[in-house]
Write a protein that binds this DNA or RNA. Structure first.
Lengths: 115, 115
DNA sequence: GTGTCGCGCAACCGATTGGTTGCCTATAGG
DNA sequence: CCTATAGGCAACCAATCGGTTGCGCGACAC
């Protein structure tokens, strides 16, 4: 288990921006793997993409490799799984809570999954 | 049917702040369910907690209910599952392991990649 | 060798954010 | 009733963020 609290912070921060999510999606699908390619598909400049990529790299969600005069990015899945682990852990806490509450009043909670 | 792109943004933004994650954890576990209780456990003021709770409510991650002079908060799991669905959808593109996780959450990684 | 393309800084800017203090309302309790 | 406690709202502030432009450098093509 790598992924200290710092890494967790970096991952959630990286995911918080819509442009960054778009970048991540494009890199993950292989549609675009360089800053210039990504900028062509997005409504921002190449330098903006570059800064987003830097944050994604900081979160270890993508990895850049210099190939000739290009810097090709590849996605890295691990930190995403870590973020999912955090969410499921928190979610499990109140699912259990609701189960206990349901047992306490002698009936099951109804549509708690709909909010 | 819940979770438009706006909601997705709200959820990821809500998760991006460490204090907000701490609030969510405390509410989910039932350690603290009012702004005052939460503020006592955190290094910020009651009003700061209140603003964090507002954002969590905006993301539909918690729901506040007025009880007498208190406002007790309860967690709502659905949007978290939706965020997980997004991650698994993106992750599935380059890692099969996350696709499996996506199935475990009960979402289909294929058709939800919008946003 | 020269021109061009792509990249990586750095500086700068407006908007947003997380946080604070202050004030006012409403409920519970002596 | 009067007081203390819990909440909500608004104003204000420094820091961070997302984005831009500008510049210099290394690599490919001619």
């Amino acid at each position: 288990m790598p992924a200290g609290p710092d890494r967790e912070q970096a991952v959630f921060s990286a995911l918080a921006d819509p442009t960054r999510r778009a970048v991540l999606r494009s890199v993950a699908s292989g549609e675009a793997v360089t800053a210039t390619e990504l900028a062509a598909r997005l409504p921002v400049s190449r330098q903006a993409v570059q800064k987003h990529l830097a944050q994604l790299e900081d979160a270890r969600l993508v990895d850049g490799e210099r190939v000739g005069r290009e810097t090709r990015c590849a996605a890295t899945p691990a930190p995403l799984g870590d973020a999912i682990a955090w969410m499921t852990a928190v979610g499990a806490q109140w699912d259990e809570r609701l189960a206990v509450l349901g047992a306490a009043v002698g009936r099951k909670p109804g549509g708690h999954a709909t909010g």
